[in-house]
Design a protein around this nucleic acid. Structure first.
Length: 572
DNA sequence: GCCGTTTTCGGCCCGACTGTTTTCAGTCG
């Protein structure tokens, strides 16, 4: 798919055009096009072949021509023109806080700033501060921006941010008389990574709460502390903002600070057409406030049903809300079990009994113990002899512990030659078989995954793309081909809930579900604490618009057994 | 550059803060 290549080109063009002082509305048009194309669920080449490029919202005749040229020839003349006279390394400086396109253009033109080194030089020798419209303070703020840019390049993963924000909220609740309090921003939307953390609090005494906030024990630096906003750095590099708002504006502020930006802009356009105005203070008709205390009031006044935060990305949710036809998103309460956890038979340190009791405590009705297979020496993979002990133990525990069914499973390795790490007669005795690639990431990954899915005993492919958010890109896998075969064979794909995996991602999970593929949200737990990550996986699933019917482990056990049986009968 | 039940031209989301200014431009979220 060339979607992301084209989206990246348009995003770069937007940045450069902005730097060159092009009309802001034109810049926005490129930005919007970039986002919409990046979010497309289908291959843009397919739309192009059908001659329907201009049906994509935000793509008119001009951009359609550019896309057409690129898909025909592999080149885009306008892109080359725009990028031609811009030094490489200059545009990425726009990521520095407090340094925008105007200032950068000024520094480039008057002081020949072409890269980060040049920028540091003109800040150090004071020449930037002496330019018209500049001054010592502005220079100082850019220096601070550079510090942050070099230290915290990139984003924090959701799995780190969520516990952090919960801890801060608990502390504030203990120390002050807060009323309503909630995370906002991309964390509330459960994006897989977040830039900084936003928390919103309802209060009439903002200054008091913010004073407490900036004195929390984990604070390493205070960036701002006013009456309505406090801003801190915790753990050396994570920025947390607290905003205090009055009761009558709490809902509109929560709506506003949750975003996404694209979602909010779309809402405001709708409001404007109706002669209304939305801001973080409320929804207004002239001076009259129609709502704002509750988030729902913003949506209701536009004849929309309230939209869950996870899908506020302007990917069609507003149109569906207008039809009162939003998906019935899967929730944590729907989860009936976990189909992929490890025990001390392989590389985890928890016993099957501990796992079962934990699962029961969480209200699950089944739990699948899926240890690594025999070749996975790095992870104490289970040989066939020990496997038989394991089955015996599971059988005993199932009679000993009531109210939960322990399933014997495996996370069987897909070997370099595409075969599985246990023979079929062993797999046939498992309740559930999860298959995964753990080695040979560059060797014919697509063919191996397809071969595994064609085995009648394989029920789920674990972490299908193999990406680790903080460490590596996924395998070199043709996901389109994998999805096709998953749909044909009736193999489920995993949404691995481990915070550094979240694999499949939201966009890919939605593509899978659209093709009728079932998903399983599994924690891949190696510690009891890992069970808590289920909520991250559910967040991904909600962002993918999944409903309980799409998610295997919301179903009763009997239905899962039927699902496995169906595949076996089809392929045996 | 896009878009149209107020428009094929003239709009294009809203507000706060900061620092530089004497009324506003730049940046951010």
């Amino acid at each position: 798919m060339k979607n992301h290549i084209i989206a990246d080109m348009f995003e770069k063009m937007a940045a450069v055009l902005e730097f060159k002082g092009e009309m802001p509305f034109k810049v926005n048009a490129y930005r919007k096009a970039s986002r919409v194309i990046g979010d497309l669920q289908v291959d843009i080449e397919q739309i192009w072949r059908q001659g329907r490029l201009e049906d994509i919202p935000g793509i008119g005749s001009g951009l359609a021509k550019k896309i057409d040229e690129f898909l025909r020839t592999g080149r885009m003349t306008k892109y080359e023109e725009v990028m031609a006279d811009v030094p490489p390394g200059l545009i990425e400086l726009l990521e520095i806080q407090n340094l925008g396109p105007k200032t950068l253009a000024l520094a480039h033109e008057k002081l020949q700033v072409n890269n980060l080194e040049d920028l540091k030089r003109v800040l150090a020798d004071g020449s930037l501060a002496r330019l018209p419209g500049m001054g010592a303070k502005k220079a100082e703020n850019i220096i601070k921006g550079i510090e942050l840019y070099e230290r915290a390049k990139g984003r924090i993963s959701l799995g780190i941010a969520v516990p952090l924000v919960e801890e801060i909220i608990t502390q504030l609740q203990e120390r002050t008389s807060v009323k309503r309090i909630s995370p906002a921003g991309s964390l509330r939307r459960m994006r897989e990574t977040v830039g900084d953390i936003d928390i919103l609090v309802e209060t009439e005494k903002g200054a008091e709460i913010i004073a407490e906030f900036v004195h929390l024990p984990q604070v390493t630096r205070v960036l701002a502390a006013g009456d309505t906003k406090g801003s801190i750095i915790v753990e050396g590099e994570i920025q947390v903002d607290l905003r205090a708002v009055r009761p009558e504006s709490y809902g509109s502020a929560l709506q506003y600070f949750t975003g996404s930006k694209a979602h909010n802009i779309h809402l405001r356009e709708i409001a404007k057409k109706r002669g209304l105005k939305i801001s973080e203070y409320g929804i207004f008709c002239g001076k009259k406030q129609l709502g704002g205390s509750k988030e729902e009031e913003i949506y209701e006044n536009l004849d929309l049903v309230w939209i869950p935060p996870e899908i506020r990305e302007d990917r069609g949710e507003i149109e569906r809300a207008a039809e009162h036809n939003l998906p019935n998103l899967v929730s944590l309460e729907d989860i009936a079990g976990d189909l992929h956890v490890h025990s001390n038979y392989s590389d985890a340190s928890i016993s099957i009994e501990e796992i079962a009791r934990k699962a029961k405590e969480l209200g699950y009705s089944y739990i699948a113990i899926c240890d690594h297979s025999q070749s996975a020496k790095y992870a104490r993979g289970v040989e066939v002899e020990r496997l038989k002990h394991k089955w015996q133990e599971i059988k005993q525990l199932n009679t000993k512990i009531s109210g939960i069914t322990i399933l014997s499973g495996t996370e069987v390795d897909i070997l370099a030659d595409g075969t599985l790490d246990y023979p079929d007669e062993i797999l046939a005795q498992m309740d559930i078989v999860v298959a995964a690639i753990h080695s040979g990431f560059k060797q014919r990954v697509t063919e191996r995954l397809i071969a595994a899915m064609q085995n009648p005993y394989v029920n789920i492919i674990a972490h299908p793309t193999g990406r680790l958010i903080s460490k590596r890109e996924g395998y070199e896998v043709d996901l389109d081909a994998v999805l096709r075969v998953a749909a044909q064979t009736g193999t489920a794909l995993e949404i691995n809930a481990y915070y550094d995996r979240l694999d499949l991602s939201d966009v890919n999970a939605r593509r899978a579900a659209d093709m009728g593929i079932k998903l399983a949200i599994n924690t891949d737990a190696h510690l009891l604490e890992h069970f808590r990550m289920m909520r991250l996986g559910v967040g991904v699933a909600r962002r993918a618009w999944l409903e309980p019917k799409d998610v295997l482990n919301t179903w009763p056990l009997e239905k899962i057994r039927q699902f496995c049986q169906q595949k076996w009968q089809k392929l045996k």
